[in-house]
Design a protein around this nucleic acid. Structure first.
Length: 265
DNA sequence: ATTGTGGCCTGCCCGC
DNA sequence: TGCGGGCAGGCCACAA
């Protein structure tokens, strides 16, 4: 599913292929996909005649800045939920998206933004868990996981008694981490996802910070959040790839969680 | 304020 | 072969 690495790929795709092209139309046939009262008409009115000037990302939120007649326009916010993909000129933003259908139906295009040169940018989302909005509140998101500092991590964890995993999933604290990425990170860092977030020692926090950055950047290089070492064993009855112990399968922070009871403490 | 829970949405896969 | 149910999870509303 799209987590930070996938959205960063989408950002790069948009940056490379969607900027500075004049928008001539918007096709948004699914009202459900338009958030915060946005309508297809309002979206078309906001974007027609405009161009994208920059592709930014905070966590899993992709932001496309616009300009029209030299004046800054609204920011287009794209969320991809679990099965969303970004397509520019019908080229896939990412080849194989975990849990996404093997099929690839144009009927799943929830928003299509057409450019004057006949190309287009689309959000294709089978399960409709993503969404589109104008001028999303960027302040609701915490620090992006890729630029999180040790001090930022300490602040994000605080003295909370909530499970470590739940705190890392909270997009208002740390933006960009999803279920797979967090399981992989905590598995590498040797930390129990159910540990109270505030119970980490200074050394453990440092270790978590190091592995968090390491895991995100490495999975980006490997091709996405589903390419981790833990991932292959992330099935019922799976064994820890590090020490061979049967992995524990639990719900932590409301999410199915796999962890190793031997080396994750 | 913090923490936890359930529902949304749909495709897929398993078991009968 | 068809079908029902469980499951996937990012995000949000809501409850305690």
């Amino acid at each position: 599913m799209p987590e930070l690495p996938e959205i960063e790929f989408y950002r790069l795709l948009a940056e490379a292929a969607a900027l500075d092209r004049r928008i001539v139309g918007v096709f948004a046939p699914d009202p459900w996909f338009l958030k915060r009262g946005l309508t297809a008409e309002a979206l078309a009115a906001a974007l027609t005649g405009a161009r994208f000037t920059a592709a930014r990302r905070i966590g899993k939120l992709l932001l496309l800045d616009t300009i029209r007649r030299r004046r800054p326009g609204p920011v287009l916010g794209l969320r991809f939920g679990m099965t969303g993909r970004l397509l520019v000129d019908a080229a896939a933003g990412i080849e194989a998206l975990e849990y996404a259908s093997a099929r690839d139906e144009p009927a799943w295009d929830r928003v299509t933004i057409r450019f004057a040169d006949r190309g287009d940018l689309r959000v294709r989302d089978a399960r409709r868990l993503g969404g589109v909005e104008l001028d999303p509140d960027e302040n609701r998101l915490g620090v992006d996981a890729l630029v999180l500092t040790p001090a930022g991590l300490r602040a994000a964890l605080g003295a909370s008694i909530a499970p470590l995993k739940a705190r890392l999933m909270d997009q208002g604290r740390v933006a960009g981490m999803g279920n797979l990425l967090i399981d992989e990170t905590l598995w590498r860092a040797g930390l129990d996802p159910a540990r109270p977030a505030g119970s980490l020692t200074e050394a453990e926090r440092r270790r978590l910070h190091r592995y968090l950055r390491l895991t995100v950047t490495e999975l980006m290089a490997r091709g996405g959040s589903h390419t981790g070492e833990l991932h292959v064993a992330r099935v019922r009855g799976g064994l820890c790839p590090r020490d061979g112990a049967p992995l524990e399968r639990r719900t932590v922070g409301g999410r199915t969680t796999y962890s190793c009871p031997v080396h994750q403490r």
